[in-house]
Design a protein around this nucleic acid. Structure first.
Lengths: 237, 237, 237, 237
DNA sequence: GATGAATGAGAATTCATTCAT
DNA sequence: AATGAATGAATTCTCATTCAT
């Protein structure tokens, strides 16, 4: 099959001015009486959302380049051309997808950081949070997408690092440092490498995408086991 | 052919299955001294290898679909058509790439399993093995490719699971069970989820591909720290 | 995919079977007055027709394999891709071409069969029909195409035999049998081999395609002469 | 499928000097003792013949453009490159094929012309000749090839007309004129259109290639019936 | 705003032809 | 001479993007 070169991130064709976010409010309209603007707004937001959801499904299954906007449109129940009313081009759609689907989680984690409870309890909450809000949702697919397409979208990787990862890591580090100082964790390993906290989550995401049909993985149990390891207060020698 | 070989209704191409070794010798040759078959053979193997290496670089940077065989050819220093003398099509090239690059590591790990040394020492060796033989090489890229493209190549994911992952996991489980029985590991967590051993490796691969330029990661140190965590015999209470 | 549609492992294209008529009407439309569906429909039919006509010209001049769809498109005054909106692929285009161009003639011949006039008069009409409706039109080229490409499109040859030839032959046989019984033809040769009636037509088609520039052939005269031969009531001995 | 443009008759690539006929005799050879030149000559002629035969089979089945020289070579039991030692290029091979396979028949027909026997007897001989020497042999395929590819090889059509057809027609005309003058044929139709004699032969060739599997045709019987028609001296009134 | 037909650049794949061995 | 690996032009088919309706 011939894959159109249009999907290669480098070359642009025209890049006319086009909506980034939805451009609500459009000044004086045609002669028709203004039809309840907020209704229209709502409909637009809904449609935009439908496109993003459809896009995630397709991108996640096919990858960026192999995804056809035709399929996205069909899945979203709209015409192909309509996508271009909401997104400048395929790449914009992709990037906004990643952006809108990832950011929300950060706030939650930063909130956890500031709670003053035993870290072990927090860790358990983190596991639940991950299982419920990431692993059990489309976010899992976004992460896999990020891994798959990151190298070709450095800007996106940067955005992801800056807006998501670095903040999560910073929050974790703060949290873990406190825990270590309080003696709640027996080693400074996780303070130096907070990534280790996330490692099983990564395993879960990757495994679920690739190998679950061969050998199902009890993600929650695995993550709990890992937390146990990290926070083991040590056995009596 | 698309094409597609569509325009040639009658016959299917023979598709002589991309020669692996070359079948020399075709009955009585000319009077000349035997034309050093191994020389030609070597050249072919070399060329095949060059294509695979170039392909890995491109696939790894662009993903399967976005990679142009033209670029692979250019990088390998050959003509576009030559690729087709060695591989049936783009997908075959991709699959053989994964296959040939991944399998070799398995043997090594299974060998480790049978060594009768303290598990802790083995773990350290595993870390070194990973850093040297995977993280420091193209294999790292193969793993990322596998993650990125796996969902679209179920056969490949299956092959990878069957030939690589399941065997590694089985070997680890044997190893860790022994260790647990000997009291070398304080929890059965890693026995139940040997994946946890590999988790930091996965983090390393993903991180290096996406975020290293923002925040370098000392992979060896991270993995050692993780091993420390897993094998900590417990602090004195 | 050419495509081979090889690089997209998962899904098969839907291949919406090259719209013949167009399915208009998609639920409640905008407030505008119904957008003259027949206008769009007509335009589509026209375009489809233009492609077929251009294709016949090219296929007829170059043969199936040597014809470039690019040339067909150029001749039809459309873009290359547009062909694929109307026909699945090159082969479909070719087959539909043959189909649509050949069938119409059959009805006419079957109508002749049922007329109750002297066979000799019918034969004359047949000659006129052939000269006017076949030899003087694109159908001549379709026949030549059929001869040239038939061996490589057995399905098409079968269709042609079933839908066209066998029916014409059956009609002729009925006709000729009646004539023979009435003593209008002196020999049962043409009853046993109705193909003989068509033979000069075949000569005409082939000759016109290959040798007319060297030695023009008066096709009507030749066919009339042949009819004379067949229906000669015999000379008085 | 992508069909190479090299096969389009128009554009040439390089056209270096190359053998047209087989170039026997090659002056002083290498140091080796001359190995019985006529033996080599024979081997060469044999090989050339093998290529032509293989080429006819392929061209006849696939048509000129769709035939791959690879297949011709395989069928002839030689390497692809070897073809170029005997023929300048694909087109030369095709043209020589037509030439060498058609010419021989002409002499035979011209010989018939000069025989002084009743035309009716000659006609019967002609039928036998056709059935045996054309219809029963590869020549049948050559004729179909000529019909199929003629429009794209005007030179070849001209050659065929000049060397074959026009001579056959002239011979027939002479013959038939004599017959008509002697009262052996009742009408001057075949004198004016000697093509009519050949018409059933054409039918036979085309039918056998396309429709024989649906409805076998007794070619000899058909041709005899046709001859009967042409030479019927008339029924007693 | 929405639509979806049309466009045309682009990529996979094929194969005639060359040429080193 | 013979071979068959290598080449790269040419062709089919796809799909992001535009635009008339």
């Amino acid at each position: 099959m011939a894959r159109s070169g249009k999907s290669r991130p480098a070359k642009k064709r025209t890049a006319k001015a086009a909506p980034r976010g939805v451009s609500f409010g459009r000044g004086p309209q045609t002669g028709k009486s203004a039809p309840a603007p907020s209704a229209r707004e709502a409909k637009q937001a809904e449609r935009r959302e439908a496109i993003l959801t459809a896009a995630l499904a397709e991108f996640s299954a096919q990858g960026f380049t192999a995804t056809r906007l035709d399929d996205v449109a069909r899945r979203a129940g709209i015409a192909k051309g309509t996508i271009y009313l909401y997104f400048r081009d395929k790449e914009s759609l992709f990037q906004e997808l990643i952006r809108t689907r990832l950011s929300p989680i950060v706030g939650t984690i930063e909130a956890l950081r500031d709670a003053d409870v035993p870290v072990r309890a927090l860790a358990d909450q983190l596991v639940e949070l991950f299982v419920r809000e990431v692993f059990g949702t489309q976010r899992k697919d976004v992460i896999r997408l990020m891994i798959a397409e990151g190298p070709r979208f450095p800007k996106l990787a940067e955005f992801y690092y800056r807006e998501v990862l670095s903040r999560i890591i910073a929050a974790l580090r703060t949290l873990l440092k406190r825990a270590h100082e309080r003696g709640e964790v027996g080693s400074d390993a996780v303070v130096r490498f907070p990534q280790l906290i996330a490692a099983p989550g990564l395993v879960a995401v990757v495994w679920s995408g690739l190998f679950d049909r061969f050998e199902p993985l009890d993600v929650r149990a695995m993550m709990k086991a890992h937390v146990d390891l990290l926070f083991t207060p040590g056995r009596a020698a």
